[in-house]
Computed example of a mutant assay.
Amino acid sequence: MKKAFIIVIIVLLIVFGGIFGFKIFVNEKISEAMAHMPKPVMTVSATAAKTELWHPRLQAIASLAAVQGVEITPQIAGNVTAIHFHSGHHVQAGTVLVQIDDSNQLAQLASDEAQLRLAQINLHRTHELIATKAASQSQLDSAVATYQSSVATLKNIRATLNKLAIRAPFSGYLGIRQVNIGQYLTPGTKIVDLQSWDPLHANFTLPQSKLRDIHVGTRVQVETNARPGQIFDGKVTALGASVNSATRQIAVQATIANPQGVLRPGLFGEITVIRNIEEKVLTVPVSALSYNTFGNYVYVVKKVTQDGKTVEVAHQQVIKSGKERNGQVNIVSGLKAGDMVVTAGQVKLVDGSLVKISNEKDA
């Protein structure tokens, strides 16, 4: 029994040893074959890093405000007898918006006009009597005073009537109506908003250290998430007279063109101040950048000689990037003008990959 057990063990050792030995042999042959196989060539898109002229920019958060905006309110109390506008419509300056009951004033107007006519007749008659010395100078003075008083009284009642017909003080867009026919209004009661939309003011602040970089006439651009993808141009039109002693910020006001009326007072957005100087910067497309825990990098394509042939090889290059603009990113360090960087297809690359540059869309 002991001898048979030993024989079985020996047979098993021979069998398993053969199996393991065969696997080792096969792996060695595969490794040898792989070592002699040519490296795969990856097709990528690439472009050269280039030098551009950029205007240095300052950025801040701006609030839009109407150049002219007001809440329409009555100056004299009374009941609303007519409403001549619709919410959201555009009105011209001088358009009557609301009529407040003026029946008493109209009656008084008729009385005052009659008194003025009488005063005119008496004054004319007195002048005739003075010519014939049938009236005294005091009578003439009294007639003149009565006439002038009647004129002033008539002007007063007409001014009151004008205030009871509430008009748009300037051209603009109306908000939502806040009053109804028959409603009794007191001075200060809100009737409707009136805002002009073109142009608009953009109000923002900048640190005192940027004061030398901005002046009246400096170009600005505004973007807001209310109109994504659109840029609105304007210029700085005013600077604050002093720096805020608490925040050390200076107030700045720009005027923004809004010819299509797509912006509204009260919106906020990002404003970019474009300085009137140019700087040379090195740029590559944003799509060329890759990221890992060690920072940003790009793949730089270089031509090298391997086995007597010229091939293109992609090497990882760590870079320091700056600001982005119009799909380009400023490269602060790590590249030089003319370096070919991969812009598409880098996900299939490793450092040292052989590549073929093809700038077709399906690369």
Rank of each mutant, 00 (worst) to 15 (best):
Y291T: 15
A254H: 06
G334L: 06
T153Y: 07
I357E: 00
I256C: 04
V350S: 15
W54P: 01
Q253M: 13
L118C: 00
E32G: 08
S31L: 05
I231W: 07
Y291A: 13
I10R: 01
A152P: 02
H36E: 10
F5T: 13
D102E: 13
F170R: 11
F170I: 08
Q92C: 02
P259Q: 12
H201K: 15
V144S: 13
R177C: 15
R264S: 13
K361W: 06
V347G: 09
I256H: 00
V222Q: 01
K348R: 15
K323Q: 10
D351C: 09
L194K: 04
V192S: 05
D362E: 15
I271Q: 01
R125F: 05
N276S: 15
G69D: 00
E128N: 15
N79E: 12
A145I: 06
Q316H: 04
T310M: 14
K163E: 12
N276K: 15
A152N: 12
G17F: 00
L140R: 14
G88L: 02
I176V: 09
E113D: 07
L267S: 12
P74G: 03
K323P: 11
S353D: 00
A226F: 06
L123D: 07
T81P: 02
G21F: 01
K210V: 14
V350W: 12
Q346H: 13
M1Y: 00
F294A: 15
V236I: 10
N203R: 10
A257Q: 12
K210W: 14
L12A: 10
Y291E: 15
T186L: 06
I256E: 09
I19H: 09
G217Q: 03
S136R: 05
M1Q: 07
V273M: 10
S358D: 14
A110H: 01
T126N: 02
A246P: 02
T47M: 02
F204Y: 09
L106S: 04
V243C: 03
T73E: 03
T272R: 14
F25T: 08
G175R: 01
F204K: 04
D351A: 02
K155V: 13
V304D: 03
K280G: 00
G334C: 01
I72Y: 02
A119P: 05
V342K: 04
Q59W: 02
W54D: 03
E312S: 11
A114E: 06
E223D: 13
I76H: 09
N104R: 11
G175Q: 03
R117I: 14
S353E: 06
D141M: 02
A107K: 13
H36L: 09
G240K: 03
T283A: 00
N258C: 14
K3Q: 10
G240T: 03
G18M: 06
Q328H: 03
V44K: 08
N79F: 00
D351E: 08
L164R: 09
S287F: 00
D112W: 05
A202C: 11
